[in-house]
Amino acid sequence: MKAFGYMAPRSIEEAVGLLGRESAVPLAGGTDLLVAIKRGAPAPEWMVDITGIGLDRIEEADGALCLGAASTHARILASDTVRSRFPALMEALTGIGSPQVRNLATIGGNICYAVPSADSVPPLLALGAEIEVIGPAGSRRWRLEEFFVGPRRTVLGPGELVTEVRVPLPAPGTGTAFLKAGRRKAMSLAVVNVAVSMRAAADNRTADGVRIALGAVAPTPLRAYSAEQLLQGRVFTADLAEEAAMEAAKATAPISDLRATARYRYDLSKVLVKRAIMKAWERAAGPGR
């Protein structure tokens, strides 16, 4: 194991100061960063532990669910708000790693590591999440759609730290769903993952507020805007869902790798998007709404 130094700041300000140094990186759960170093990635000179600076709050504020960036997946899954109002997020986080990993890994880490297959991202995109960032030049807020630049690359500049993920509380009558296909049931990276959020208008027939997001099918997780437009404001039918799923697949740009071929990912995108739309609609307009 390569040597590195370790610092445990006690406040966000102190952490930002320490991260301003060259070759200092934030350490949260470590389940990606430390594994990468064990596998041969260069180690930074300093690890700045950000798990003791108050970034683990999970609370409702100003019409949003605010997730401190250093909240572990296990703690988010234990939140009553998440369990009752964010089923797609719950379904996504339940499938990340193992119980042991979910006790360490954080939501901020899953987002900042920025792998195209990150399971937390499609539901957060579908829910309209924003990312709060603090850095040497102060704080700024990003729409999640604008946060990713490429595989393992984000808009974060030197010394910047994600502090919070803000997820607007869904409007009444909203249904959300997350679906993932992997090579196994557990401990599996997504071959394709999909999240859908939509609501039924007052007539309980018209689709509204439609958001469709996919992961592992392009250099970054993406929104399928044209597919959303196909459903938006129209009377919902299964045929329309099928059409939107075809359109969503066109927004993908998948690669072939050891988990699947590009063609398989493209075809799988259609299947999963259709199923996720049907499930989200059922939750929005079905008898259990």
Binding site: G30, K38, R39
Partner: peptide, 27 residues
């Protein structure tokens, strides 16, 4: 495995299972 996949190193940290191969002892 040493990389958090196999669980052979599982210990309870404040009652919760974690992969001790991924936890810096200093923490």
């Amino acid at each position: 495995c040493g990389t958090g996949e196999c669980g052979a190193c599982t210990v309870l940290l404040d009652g919760r299972p974690v992969n001790s191969c991924l936890v810096l002892a200093v923490r």
